[in-house]
Nucleic acid binder design. Structure first.
Lengths: 161, 161
DNA sequence: CAAGATTGACCGATCAATCTTT
DNA sequence: AAAGATTGATCGGTCAATCTTG
């Protein structure tokens, strides 16, 4: 076992700041969406991904991949959205094992209603507090992180983001 | 409803990169700790916080605050760590309603054993992939985020429950 | 009564097992 | 067989209610 390279003060602070601030940010955005529109940030993200897909639908596996959710986790989440009338299941005609999750008009309406709250939150708590340069640096820095994990591209047929 | 200020391409990318990369990073670090030492990142963080406290102990309320966990959530997490012999409860002598969670020698040993894995992970997946300047910029940018946390502000706007 | 901690009910996620279709 | 999706058991978290102590 080799010698441990400890983190110095700045490295440790950068790491901890990243973790704590990102968590706090998500918590605030989630609370705002929940309070004003009765929708969780997690469900909001499902609607966003579906809304950006061709024909506003995705196969379950592709959607699970895009949301970094397990197959069973996605099944239950879609169940809940179906109960609210925001998503429907469609059999996939070319492969009868598979299903599409389709965004309904009601789901699109819910997303459209909630989007301003979410975007204003992202601005108020994040984007507007950083300069253009800071924002670009941050994105550029983070882009190289954890690349090997995200190359989980088994589901071609969608998630073309 | 006021005019919505949409996010432009760079703003949106910075925001999404922050969210997805941070989540991926935590997932990797958690998996590494779990695989090599049988401890979750969440439990690791409990041990870290306790190890840094005076006398390696904290009252439950203080610990819950430090970990951003609800009181009941902390109770169950400490239960689990007590079962593993890594933490003990001590009655607080000055206030008999309260308890300390105390890091045991075994808990400290577990932390010491796992720390190199964690630190090497933070280096390999994060710190060593950014320049010193990028790291400082990132920390500086994020520091101003979400300072006022959880203001239950005018949430009466469009409450369409 | 208020504060600190715990318990019960429940929610949302995972893994393992299952069912259907390829 | 293997792949896509779902179900059952279970885990870890929250909220509401409770118990004990200040």
């Amino acid at each position: 076992v080799a010698e441990v390279r400890w983190l110095d003060e700045r490295e440790m602070r950068a790491w901890r700041t990243l973790v704590t601030k990102t968590a706090a940010l998500r918590a605030v955005l989630d609370a705002e969406l929940e309070a004003r529109h009765g929708i969780s940030l997690a469900d909001y993200e499902v609607l966003v991904v579906l809304s950006e897909a061709p024909e506003r639908r995705l196969r379950m596996a592709a959607l699970a991949c895009g949301l970094h959710l397990s197959p069973s986790g996605l099944t239950r989440r879609i169940d809940a959205l179906v109960r609210r009338g925001w998503v429907e299941r469609q059999r996939c005609p070319s492969d009868r094992r598979s299903f599409f999750a389709v965004l309904t008009p009601e789901g699109l309406a819910a997303l459209t209603a909630a989007a301003p709250t979410h975007l204003e939150g992202v601005r108020a708590h994040f984007v507007d507090r950083l300069s253009r340069r800071q924002l670009d640096n941050l994105a550029a820095g983070l882009r190289g992180i954890c690349t090997e994990v995200l190359l989980d591209d088994t589901a071609r047929d969608g998630v073309a983001r």
